[in-house]
């Protein structure tokens, strides 16, 4: 009897594997969770974009209020698609958006904002190799971080913010943090 069980072992192992494979079909292997969730925002001190009139973006600007940090760049195709929605969020006034102009010539970044509109409260220039963005664990643009009043990162969204993402995910988190 014992030896008969041994012959069952391969099929049992296979069934176990099948469970993982099935689960795997509904996982995204490319989604990398951030390790910075619930950690304080990294220490950054970014210069302003030329002619924008703010003083750049520092860590302390991310404290005292809930904010949305958005990674963009004038070279980034998907950012153009996202941009109108950021403009809409700004118009609604539900949360201040802070921009990080990643791996970009600050002049090009400024020109891009002039062309497509400027939804940001503050923008910091983070030219290559993008130390500040690497400190945020950025893997691509656009990416957005929800930062709470204490300056801690509470949520990271990879990719474009659209109506669905905003209404179903980001806004509820922000509303909760603003209470």
């Amino acid at each position: 009897m014992k030896s008969r069980l041994a012959y069952l072992l391969p099929v049992l192992i296979f069934v176990g594997l099948l469970g993982f494979f099935f689960k795997g079909l509904f996982l995204d292997p490319k989604a990398i969770p951030s390790v910075l969730i619930d950690k304080p925002v990294p220490n950054i001190d970014l210069a302003a974009l030329p002619g924008r009139g703010d003083t750049g973006l520092k860590s302390e600007h991310l404290k005292g209020q809930v904010s949305l940090v958005n990674i963009f760049g004038s070279w980034c195709v998907a950012c153009v698609a996202e941009h109108p929605y950021l403009m809409k969020i700004k118009a609604e006034g539900s949360v201040p958006i802070m921009g990080i102009d990643w791996r970009d010539d600050p002049k090009a970044g400024m020109a891009w904002l002039q062309k497509h509109g400027d939804p940001y409260e503050r923008v910091g220039a983070d030219p290559a190799p993008g130390h500040a963005s690497v400190d945020f664990g950025v893997t691509g643009a656009p990416e957005s971080f929800v930062v709470d009043r204490d300056g801690r990162i509470r949520y990271k969204h990879v990719g474009i913010i659209d109506d669905r993402v905003w209404k179903q995910t980001l806004l509820p988190i922000i509303k909760e943090l603003q209470k």
């Binding site: 791996r103 130390h131 691509g140």
Partner: peptide, 10 residues
């Protein structure tokens, strides 16, 4: 990839 280049530099 650009990010890889940045990371190499860092």
């Amino acid at each position: 990839a650009d990010l890889a280049k940045d990371l190499r530099q860092i």
